[in-house]
Design a protein around this nucleic acid. Sequence first.
DNA 1: CCCGCATGATAAAGCGCTTAATCAGCGGGG
DNA 2: CCCCGCTGATTAAGCGCTTTATCATGCGGG
Lengths: 355, 355
Amino acid sequence: MPSHTTNRKRRVTQADVARRAGVSTAVVSAILNPNSATGVRVSPETAERVREVVRELGYTPNPIAQSLARGKRNILGVFTYEPVFPSERGNFFYPMLRGIEMQVSGAGYDLLLFTSVQTEGQPRKIFAGGSNRLGVADGAILLGQEPDPSEMERLADEGFPFVTVGRRHSSRVELNWAAAGYADATAEIVLLGHEKGHRRIAFVGSATIREQQLDREEGFRSAMQGLGLDEGPEWCWHLDPDKLDAAWLQSLLANGVTLVLAETLEHAERIEKLLGSRGMSVPDDLSMAVLGTPLEDTRRITRWTRFEVPREEMGREAVRLLLAQLDGRVTGAAQTTLPCSFIPGETLRRVAPAH
Amino acid sequence: MPSHTTNRKRRVTQADVARRAGVSTAVVSAILNPNSATGVRVSPETAERVREVVRELGYTPNPIAQSLARGKRNILGVFTYEPVFPSERGNFFYPMLRGIEMQVSGAGYDLLLFTSVQTEGQPRKIFAGGSNRLGVADGAILLGQEPDPSEMERLADEGFPFVTVGRRHSSRVELNWAAAGYADATAEIVLLGHEKGHRRIAFVGSATIREQQLDREEGFRSAMQGLGLDEGPEWCWHLDPDKLDAAWLQSLLANGVTLVLAETLEHAERIEKLLGSRGMSVPDDLSMAVLGTPLEDTRRITRWTRFEVPREEMGREAVRLLLAQLDGRVTGAAQTTLPCSFIPGETLRRVAPAH
DNA sequence: CCCGCATGATAAAGCGCTTAATCAGCGGGG
DNA sequence: CCCCGCTGATTAAGCGCTTTATCATGCGGG
C-alpha cells in the first residue's frame, strides 16, 4: 500500500460519490464523460442525483488517474534545450512559444514546459535517470539551438511523437519538423542581386555550423550555380564577426565582390565598420543583405535588406503537425518548410554588371 | 478493458522487463528508485541483470503511472487568466515567468502552462466541465490581472495548494500570495514629496479598481494622514487617462496641488500633455511621479520619478511559498510583500512649502 | 538440534479512473 | 406462454506503477 505522503486532506474520489449516491462508479464515470460512447446507460433521475452529490461533495476527477485509464493525457510537452525565459535566449523562443500557445489552446491541450534541470549548469536532457521525462505528455515540441541528436533518435525509436521547430536531420530515423525556408530565401536574395547587376557575390556565416546555416549556404550555392556564376570556395566564409578583419575585407574587395550576404546582423555591422575605416560605405561601395532578422534591437535592423523568419508560424505549424500525428491522421514523416518574407531595406543597390 | 486508442506501438512496461529478467516487478521498481526506502532488497547481480534488460528493451517508466502510485507528480501548474505569450499581455507575464522558471528549475519540478481554453473568446476557467484542471499538478501559481475570486475560493476549499502572484483577498478563505509593496512604495513617494516641500498632493488612478490600486491608494492615504496633510476625497481621482481633461486639470491646479501621483505612465503623459496646452511643463509647474514601471516603451519612462515593481522576484517568491507548502514546511497562510525600488527620475522637484 | 535472524526475493493490494462484459427486470410480439 | 430486446444498471478487469506484507533459504549461536 502506498504511503501517500499527502499533507492535503484526502481528495474526494469517484468511489465516495458513487457510495453516497448509491450507485456504482461506472455510473458516475459515465455521467462525467457524457460524450464517450461507453456501454453504460443512466436514467435522467439517477444522473441528476449523482450530479447533486458531485456538487455537494465538491468532487473533481483526478486527471492523473484519468490519464492512466484512458491512455491519453491532453498535454503537449515543450522541451527547450536552453532556458525559455531568461533574457538572452528568451527573446528567441518567445515568438515560437506564442505560436505554439495560440495553436494549442483551442485544441484542448495544455502545455507542459520542461524546465527542470538535473545538475545546475549542465545542459538539459530529455532522458534523465533512464526515464523519458517527456512521457507525461502525449507528444512534444522540441526547441533550441543546440539539440542533442542522439536524444532525438532515441525518442523516435521509442515511438514517442514529437516535432522540432527548425529543420533537423538524422541518418537513422525520420524526423518531423516545421522549419523556415532559409535556402529559398537566400536564393531569392542572390537572384535579386543578380538582377541588380551583381555578379560576384560572397557569403559570410558563423564558424559554428548549424542546420540553419547549412540551409542558407545551400540556397546560396544552388542559386549561384543556377545563375552560372563563378563561385569558388573562397567566396563562402565561416567566420565569427570578430574574426573579420581588414585583411579579409581587402581580399574580398580585391576579388571584385560587390554583394555580401551576411548570416547575422553582427556580421553585417562588423563589415560595415571595416568598410568605414577605409572610408567606404554600404551600399555605395558594397551592397549587403542579412540572412534573417534578429529579435533584439529592432531599430538597428530596419535599413538592412534581409528576410524575416516566420517564427510564430513555425510554432503554430509544429503544433499542427504534432496534433495530426497524435490523431493518427498522418503516417510518414511530416515536414513543413515555411517561406520567409523578403524585406527590401536599403543596403542592396543596383550596379553596372561587371562583365 | 480500456480500448487504448494508441497509434503508438505499445510502450515497454515494467512487467515486460520483469518477465524478461525473470524477476518480479517489485524488484524492477526497487532498482529504478534506489533512494526510496522500500522493504525490497536486491542482490547486486540481480540488479545488474535487470539494468541490462532495461537498457536492452529501452524501458522508460510511465510517469503517469508513477504519479498515480506515488500520489506525487513533480509538476507545478501555472495558470494565467489571460494568454501568456500573445503580445500585449505577454510582456506583463514575462518577468514573472522568468522568476518562476528560474526558481522551479533546480527544484526538480516541471512547469505546466494551462493554456487551453474551452470556448474561444471566453475567459479561461480553472474549473471546466466540473473538473479542476489544475489537478495534474502538485500545486499551482496563479497569474493574471482579472482573476476569478470564486474559483480561488473553491480551489482553497478543495485544499489544493496554490499561490497567487499579486495580493488577493477573500473574506472566506486564507489566500497565499507573493505581492509587491505598492502601499509602502507609494507612501515613500508621498514622504519624499513632503520633504521636498510639497503639501498638496493628489492621486490619480484608473477607473477600474484592482487590488494593486487599492494598495497604492491605501499607501497614499495613510502617508497623507501620517503627515497631517489635508487630503480630501477631491484629491483622489479614479479616472482613466482619456477622461482627464482641461477642466479637471484646472480644478486640480486651482486647489493648489503641486505634486500628482499617477498610477500609470499613460495617466502621467496625459496630464503632461494637458499642461503643455496651457504652456506649462513637468516638473517646472507641476511635479509628478508614476506609481510603477511599464514594461513596454522602456525609453519613455526613464525621466519619470517612479518605483520599480519586483516582478521577477515575485515569481521566484511565489514558487518558494508553493514549494514550502508542498513540503509541508508551512501551516498557515504564506504571504510575502516584496519591496519596490524607488527610482528618482527628474519629475519630482523641490518647491517652496505652500503654507 | 532448533531457533532467530539476516538476505533476497515474491505476491498482491491499491492509487482513481474507464470500459467491456454481464445481468436483472420488464413489456410486447409471435 | 416464451423468448426477444430494450433499459438501466453492476461487476470486474486493467492502465503501469509503488509498497507493504509475506515467504523461502541458509547460517551461526545457544
